[in-house]
Simulated scan of single mutants.
Amino acid sequence: MKSTTRGTLAAVVTGIAATVGAAGPAAAAGTVPVTVPLGGVSKALDMEVPHVGAELPLVRPGAPDGPRYVTGRLLPERTLPQLPVNSALPGLDARSPLPHVLGDGFDHVDVDAPASDLRALTPGLSLDAPLTAPRADNSGLPQTKLPEVGVLAPVLQTVPDANLTTGPGL
């Protein structure tokens, strides 16, 4: 095996090991950090390149509230229950050189948008049959009524945050 092939194989194995090693703590935190490797481009072009990193969220579905049986209805109150989902908005960390566009004191622009918590509920459905419950005054037979259909609206809660800064140095 050539030395270049061994070196490439070693680099791939090292990258996989680093990714697997970072996945455990990331799963506990709820996001997976991702860095775009631009170091080789910086050395090949002999210039400063931007630093780009991100945080990708892991989706964690929760347990739905089950159907609720209500007296006087043939079908439960929440026929198709809402599913809670907890996650995060993706985060971004980008820093780029800025060649004195804004004046002599500004050498970089930096965008920092950390991952923020996201709570959501999927849409649900509530149905009721076009019959009432059996009634004693009607010889134990149900009566007809208008059917009922209700859509439980989806819910989305989050508080995003971001910072844009410029300053000297990279």
Rank of each mutant, 00 (worst) to 15 (best):
D137V: 08
S87A: 06
T166F: 15
L164M: 01
V85E: 07
P130K: 12
P123F: 01
T71K: 15
D46A: 14
S42L: 01
P90I: 07
V49N: 12
I16S: 10
V41M: 15
P61F: 09
A11D: 10
H100D: 13
A28Y: 03
T158N: 12
R95F: 05
D117A: 15
A133M: 05
T35H: 11
E48C: 05
R73F: 00
N163I: 01
R73G: 05
M1Q: 09
A11H: 08
L74S: 11
A133R: 00
G40I: 10
V49Y: 11
N86E: 14
K43V: 09
L83Y: 00
D65F: 04
A18G: 05
H51W: 08
K43L: 12
D110P: 00
A11W: 08
A28L: 06
G72V: 11
L56W: 09
A113D: 06
L146T: 02
L141N: 06
N138L: 07
L170Y: 15
V59H: 03
G66K: 12
P160K: 07
N163T: 14
S96R: 05
V149G: 02
A26C: 04
G40A: 10
K2L: 09
L146K: 02
L58R: 03
P81I: 00
S3D: 11
A18T: 10
S87G: 03
P50H: 12
